[in-house]
């Protein structure tokens, strides 16, 4: 097992998998004839792929078919019995959540919809210990980023597949700007290379929270979020990781802001520079 990968590895694999277009393929075949090392590497990677399809087929063959059929039948019955709401889905797979997980889930659901939140708060959410005011404030300052991360984890490139019409985009930005008291109309134009996919207005513990969704062709979904900060804290730009997200956040002038995505820190910091500058 060599430490360093062969620079041609991606092309070799694409050739083996039939993913090269005809011109690339012809060029690669010509190289193979002239470069014995390349051929040797190709044979090595070809061997590496030899057992995979069989192994995957073996794995699928071991699926517990009767159990899976039961699971589907139960899901169908549950769906029919409980009607078309968000709540039944949340209840079933997460029925065994610990109190801490329920808090996390209720934070996420809080953003997802009022009905689900009422359900959790009313019937399942445990009571938290009273906290001193400053502790609570610090916690909340961090919590809003956690809450955004929980929610953003549900977003895939497919979620953002459709771009809003220019009229719709402008209307969303106007609504968000007026609720927050900050002009956000220029933000999409400040973020080069990102495709704007709409602005949504949320409420986090009584404070307006705006989330602008973007699709980065290279790194997938990226969100820029702004929340009202009555404490008017001044926090310099800070980069952190939260689970598998990178977050760049800062606070000034009565708002806390963040950029979040599964993108390298450098990419998000460069975007933060544009939007904060």
């Amino acid at each position: 097992m060599s430490e360093q990968s062969h620079p041609d590895d991606p092309t070799i694999v694409a050739y083996l998998d039939g993913e090269l277009d005809p011109a690339e393929r012809a060029a690669f075949v010509a190289r193979l004839e002239a470069e014995p090392d390349l051929l040797q590497r190709l044979e090595e990677l070809d061997r590496g792929g030899a057992g995979i399809a069989d192994a995957m087929a073996e794995l699928k063959a071991r699926a517990p078919k009767p159990r899976l059929d039961d699971i589907l039948a139960q899901a169908v019955a549950q769906h029919a019995a409980e009607g078309d709401t968000v709540v039944p889905f949340r209840r079933s797979p997460f029925a065994n959540l610990s109190p801490r997980q329920l808090i996390a889930a209720s934070v996420a659901l809080f953003l997802l919809g009022g009905i689900a939140n009422d359900f959790l708060r009313g019937q399942q959410a445990p009571r938290q210990e009273p906290q001193r005011a400053e502790e609570a404030e610090t916690t909340r300052r961090e919590d809003w980023r956690q809450a955004v991360a929980e929610y953003w984890s549900l977003t895939t490139p497919e979620t953002l597949a459709l771009a809003p019409t220019p009229e719709r985009a402008a209307a969303e930005l106007r609504l968000a700007s007026s609720k927050l008291g900050v002009d956000l109309a220029g933000v999409p134009g400040q973020l080069p290379g990102l495709s704007f996919r709409g602005a949504q207005l949320f409420d986090f513990h009584g404070k307006p929270l705006v989330q602008m969704a973007f699709l980065d062709p290279e790194h997938g979904p990226i969100a820029y979020c702004v929340i009202d900060d009555p404490q008017k804290a001044e926090i310099a730009r800070t980069t952190e990781t939260l689970d598998d997200f990178t977050i760049v956040h800062w606070s000034s002038g009565g708002q806390a802001r963040l950029l979040i995505g599964r993108a390298p820190a450098g990419r998000l910091e460069a975007l933060a520079e544009k939007v904060a500058g």
Binding site: S5, D9, E44, L45, D46, R47, G51
Partner: peptide, 18 residues
């Protein structure tokens, strides 16, 4: 592509051993 290349590289000794 890079992930698949790395995977094939890791698995290649198995095919030799088998």
């Amino acid at each position: 592509m890079s992930r698949l290349a790395a995977i094939r590289e890791k698995l290649s000794p198995l095919a030799d051993m088998s």
